[in-house]
């Protein structure tokens, strides 16, 4: 089957800075594709190019069989975008916002009413239809934006940090809606988030750093690639303890992060038994867990995503 998104040799330079340094990837139809990376990694630049908002310096993007550089209108009809920042007209009602969208995307007149009803049901906003958007809470605005993005039945839905600034309960709800959509409509979703636990719902994730994709695979494969368990360890002297572990277990990978040491070993049972008995600096805390996407990110970039974020901001 033809991929729904096909990116080849994609590059983008701004004046002297090369923001995107050559990307090649494909997204299959019906897939949830997670696009991860810290600020300044080139994520937004890439999405803007895919959404026809920014012209690439080099390379090509094909969406739904249309070339993003040459058939902008066809591409625009094929995609829906939920931007990071709010793009609703707050002075208008939910209904008016949705109707405008129908007209922008040439949804046939006789189908508008039924579709508006349908998308409002998906996001549970049927009763708020006639209210002005300025009276909505943050979560409601987000849901309305998702509803609006679906109105023209896009083949691909782009979600750029859809849950940023929402409380945990609303976030959980939003993901329920998104998963329901995937099951019901089979829409392909291209999603960026820096809550890595949320990216776990992706069928595949790509990790981007410094303008390149450094890893791309299913979350499960990426995690198993790390091999073994993660042991979080706190001791009274982390520096000397980490040296000691490195000396005694050459196969262990040790990362120091703030107060905590992350140790990755193939056989956690034997390792734990040994260090509790024999480590010179007494152990104050110990936790064994399966690797998460956070660990994948840490392993590939040497940073946690939150920290990379901070650095990205400080640098920009």
């Amino acid at each position: 089957m033809e991929p729904i998104i096909k990116v080849t040799g994609l590059k983008k330079s701004f004046k002297k800075k090369e923001a995107v340094k050559g990307l090649d990837f494909e997204v299959q139809e019906g897939e949830i594709f997670g696009f991860l990376g810290p600020n300044g990694a080139g994520k937004s630049t890439t999405i803007n190019m895919i959404c026809t908002m920014l012209a690439p310096s080099e390379g090509s993007i094909i969406i739904n069989g249309y070339d993003v550089s040459k058939q902008k209108d066809k591409v625009r009809e094929s995609i829906g975008i939920i931007f990071q920042e709010n793009t609703l007209d707050k002075k208008l009602t939910a209904d008016e916002n949705l109707k405008l969208h129908c007209r922008f995307y040439k949804v046939p007149k006789e189908k508008r009413e039924q579709r508006i009803q349908e998308v409002l049901e998906i996001v549970d906003l049927v009763n708020e239809r006639k209210q002005r958007v300025e009276t909505f809470s943050g979560g409601m605005k987000r849901r309305l934006e998702i509803a609006r993005g679906l109105l023209h039945y896009p083949r691909v839905l782009f979600l750029d940090e859809p849950t940023v600034g929402l409380d945990p309960q609303t976030r959980a709800h939003l993901w329920e809606y998104i998963l329901r959509l995937k099951e019901k409509e089979g829409i392909t979703m291209f999603l960026t988030t820096h809550y890595l636990d949320e990216a776990e719902i992706s069928d595949r994730v790509a990790i981007m750093d410094e303008g390149r994709i450094i890893a791309i695979d299913s979350p499960k494969a990426l995690k198993s690639e790390l091999g073994g368990d993660i042991i979080e360890l706190e001791t009274e002297n982390n520096v000397s303890a980490s040296e000691e572990i490195r000396r005694r277990f050459p196969e262990a990978e040790v990362t120091l992060q703030d107060e905590t040491m992350y140790v990755k070993v193939p056989d956690s049972d034997a390792f734990v038994a040994t260090i509790i008995k024999e480590l010179t600096a007494p152990v104050t805390r110990l936790n064994i867990r399966r690797p998460t996407l956070n660990d994948v990110f840490l392993a590939f970039t040497g940073r946690k995503i939150g920290e990379a974020e901070e650095q990205g901001k400080a640098g920009s």
Partner: peptide, 14 residues
């Protein structure tokens, strides 16, 4: 400023 221009610009309106 309020972001609505993005909604217009990504749509297929000429």
């Amino acid at each position: 400023d309020f972001g609505y221009m993005k909604e217009i610009l990504v749509s297929p309106i000429s």
